[in-house]
Simulated scan of single mutants.
Amino acid sequence: MVRFISVICAVVLGIACLSQRPLRAAENRPLRIIVFGAHPDDCEIRAGGVAALWAKAGHQVKFVSMTNGDIGHWAMAGGPLAQRRTAEVQEAARILGITTEVLDIHDGELLPTLENRKTMTRLIRQWQADIVIGHRPNDYHPDHRYTGVLMQDSAFMVAVPFFCPDVPPLKRNPVFLYSYDNFQRPNPFRPDIVVAIDDVIEQKLDALLAIESQFIEGGALGSLETAPQTEADRQKKREEVREAFRRRFAQIADKCRDRLIELYGPEKGKAINYAEAFEVCEYGRQPTEQEIRELFPFISP
């Protein structure tokens, strides 16, 4: 009995100490980042630029779509749409130089169940993640909200040895981050980390344009009247979508300008045109400014 209690105490102490351990210690290894989105397009929109930057620097990035997107189109649904959307994000991943996975959960039906918590916990452990990114739990779409809840629920469990014991627990506590949104209630997004994506903006836009079912054909809220009918129409739509996304990422840079200046310095921070932003989740490791620069090595004055 005494031995059992000693083992349990050691486990609890080890979990508590995870937050104190260096993220990469003395290891000379690539960073490992996993990004969770509700649908096959969310990761690409919210973190496609920083993913390309990490990939170019030799780090390992994985996107995970928590649902298969099988109702996300006005004219098709079910298995054929799920297969199409999976193929689209696979092409986007090829453009970004990363890995992607789409889970076989119906679009619009994601719930914060124990089964899904275990699935996310296993994915984070299997990837040996240093950084985990997902939606905030206050969002317009239930799949987005529950992706955020599941990420929060996994933030402690990834280190608990007897939860999902078939996959070894992490030896270091990841940093958990929320991706950017505009929602104000119950609390507005806080831009703790803002990344210049000017160097990869065209690459990111190319990746987004590969997701034609959503951005060219209109996704779930499109229609026959608004969808392109000819190849000329489709090309025009591609150009319009590209410029709309370009403006979107320019707006993030403008809204987060003060933090860009803090991170990159006045001269460079004022000159940045496009950005992605992330909020540090209060669960998981709380990075210092120095650790932020280690995790995002392309942030420099």
Rank of each mutant, 00 (worst) to 15 (best):
119 T>S: 09
126 Q>K: 12
88 E>W: 06
120 M>G: 01
86 T>I: 02
100 T>P: 00
116 N>E: 15
122 R>C: 11
123 L>R: 00
118 K>M: 14
105 I>E: 07
93 A>V: 05
110 L>K: 00
115 E>P: 03
113 T>G: 06
108 G>L: 10
116 N>H: 15
115 E>Y: 10
112 P>K: 03
122 R>K: 13
99 T>A: 11
112 P>D: 04
122 R>I: 12
94 R>S: 14
90 Q>E: 15
98 I>F: 02
122 R>Q: 12
98 I>L: 08
94 R>C: 11
88 E>Q: 10
126 Q>R: 13
97 G>F: 09
111 L>D: 12
105 I>K: 03
116 N>R: 11
108 G>T: 12
105 I>N: 04
126 Q>F: 06
122 R>P: 04
126 Q>C: 08
129 A>H: 02
125 R>T: 06
128 Q>I: 08
103 L>S: 03
101 E>D: 11
88 E>A: 09
90 Q>C: 12
125 R>V: 07
110 L>A: 04
91 E>Y: 02
104 D>L: 07
119 T>E: 14
127 W>I: 01
91 E>N: 10
115 E>L: 13
120 M>N: 04
123 L>K: 05
99 T>L: 06
118 K>T: 13
102 V>L: 04
109 E>L: 15
101 E>H: 09
128 Q>M: 09
126 Q>M: 12
97 G>L: 09
102 V>I: 13
86 T>W: 04
114 L>N: 10
94 R>E: 14
121 T>I: 12
113 T>F: 05
129 A>Q: 02
115 E>Q: 14
105 I>L: 10
88 E>I: 08
108 G>I: 07
92 A>C: 05
123 L>D: 00
120 M>S: 03
111 L>K: 15
124 I>R: 02
111 L>H: 13
96 L>Q: 04
92 A>G: 06
128 Q>N: 15
97 G>E: 11
87 A>R: 07
120 M>C: 08
99 T>K: 06
93 A>R: 00
110 L>N: 01
102 V>H: 01
91 E>A: 12
119 T>D: 05
127 W>P: 00
114 L>W: 09
96 L>Y: 04
85 R>D: 11
127 W>D: 05
89 V>H: 01
86 T>F: 02
112 P>C: 03
89 V>I: 14
125 R>E: 06
124 I>K: 02
119 T>I: 15
102 V>C: 10
125 R>C: 08
117 R>L: 12
106 H>I: 07
115 E>H: 14
112 P>E: 03
106 H>R: 15
118 K>D: 11
85 R>I: 05
102 V>A: 05
100 T>M: 00
98 I>A: 00
125 R>N: 07
126 Q>Y: 06
101 E>I: 01
89 V>E: 08
102 V>Q: 13
87 A>H: 06
105 I>W: 02
88 E>M: 08
109 E>D: 13
106 H>L: 13
111 L>S: 14
117 R>F: 06
94 R>W: 08
101 E>F: 02
89 V>D: 05
89 V>M: 06
118 K>Q: 15
116 N>K: 08
113 T>V: 06
102 V>P: 01
112 P>A: 07
103 L>Y: 04
127 W>H: 14
95 I>Y: 02
96 L>T: 04
98 I>H: 00
105 I>M: 05
104 D>W: 04
97 G>M: 10
120 M>A: 03
118 K>E: 15
125 R>P: 04
99 T>H: 11
